[in-house]
Write a protein that binds this DNA or RNA. Structure first.
Lengths: 207, 207
DNA sequence: GCGAAAATGGACCCGCAAGTCCAAAAGGGG
DNA sequence: CCCCTTTTGGACTTGCGGGTCCATTTTCGC
């Protein structure tokens, strides 16, 4: 893997990343060995090191990037279209659904707890994910302010941060206990808080 | 370790747990080996297995219990006394402070992501911690309802769940990015939401 | 103080999983 | 069709870390 990459090579590389991601989702990073990945993807040890010369860490980082992209992709298009209360509600349902389906894993959480500490690269991936996520929520809030549905005095970034924190915490609780109610409660509370601020400021019936 | 445990033995056992906890807080579970613990606590391999015959997992579980207790202990007495808005504020500060100090680790988070999946015991520890935590918050909310500071119609458990999720998420973000603003924002938003509900329902000046 | 039980030291074993190596098999441009 | 590059297979090495064992010392009830 010195610059050039055959069509076949690129496919293999991608297969490795996706296979590794799946394996990790099922069994956790800790329990996932290169041999597991090798077995699942039908590749050989040399291929793993051919495409990821720096070893496991590099592979995990690639997986992390892939999963981080996925997290946001799974919220589209709703996340990019928070322009009415029904739209917010649709996004809320989308998020809940996404995590309800794959309750066991959170690609990002292990990322933080295992790679994050050691690898600066992993840190960066997570920071970027959270930054983007929060920014998109903030855009939505600002839009609601512009149409008079949210208190214009509200600190947009801080509100977005609180909502994002609620989501993250909801996911953590989901992973810990298997219960999705915290995620739902956090999302509902966050959104309701936005609506309430709007009603307080300029009571326009928005339902 | 067959039932009896000398005074000295008990001390050693405790030293091992605390040393292991510290080691894990500094370097993460993944990077902590029995030899690290042995070195740090000035013990020998045989002692580790003497006190934790089932091996590393048993030791980690003991550490988990210890850390879980610590989490709640660090919030006392404020957590048990959420009886006025200043008290809520004091608790909020206490939580923020606690996590500001040890930003790197969250004993519970690794617990979830690494032990949780494999060990049913670890799962139980976390569930219990979250349950207790939420219950105490709920008691605080109910008290505020009883003195007319929070909307009596509010679903107490759900509100407590949302607040708890915000905290957890704030901690996760802190660990990922090193920024504590999310934790602060989540706490502030959650508490403010409670206060707002009270003002809406029965506007008694509570500042 | 004496003997049993507990506590300790540390050498040793063993398996697993990351990483290395080389040689063989596509693949693909000219 | 030829040669060079990429891709692949899989055996092998190596180190690390969990776990075992036994001999020795300390503790403690009587």
């Amino acid at each position: 893997m010195s610059g050039t990459l055959t069509r076949k090579g690129a496919a293999t590389r991608q297969r490795i990343i996706e296979g590794a991601a799946a394996e990790i989702r099922e069994h956790g990073v800790l329990a996932t060995t290169l041999d597991d990945i090798r077995g699942r993807t039908g590749t050989s040890k040399s291929q793993l090191f051919h495409y990821f010369p720096e070893g496991k860490e590099q592979l995990l980082l690639a997986v992390a990037r892939h999963e981080a992209d996925q997290v946001l992709a799974d919220q589209r298009p709703q996340l990019g279209d928070l322009t009415s209360w029904p739209a917010w509600s649709a996004w809320r349902d989308r998020v809940v659904d996404r995590y309800r389906r794959q309750k066991l894993d959170c690609p990002i959480n292990y990322l933080v707890s295992e790679l994050g500490r050691s690898t600066p690269g992993a840190q960066a991936v997570v920071v970027e994910l959270l930054r983007t996520w929060q920014a998109e929520i903030a855009v939505g809030i600002r839009h609601m302010q512009s149409i008079g549905e949210v208190d214009p005095e509200m600190d947009t970034e801080r509100a977005a941060a609180a909502l994002l924190a609620g989501i993250q915490g909801g996911v953590v609780v989901l992973m810990s206990t298997g219960s999705i109610t915290h995620l739902e409660a956090a999302l509902d509370a966050g959104i309701e808080s936005l609506r309430a601020s709007g009603r307080r400021h300029a009571p326009s019936d928005a339902a």
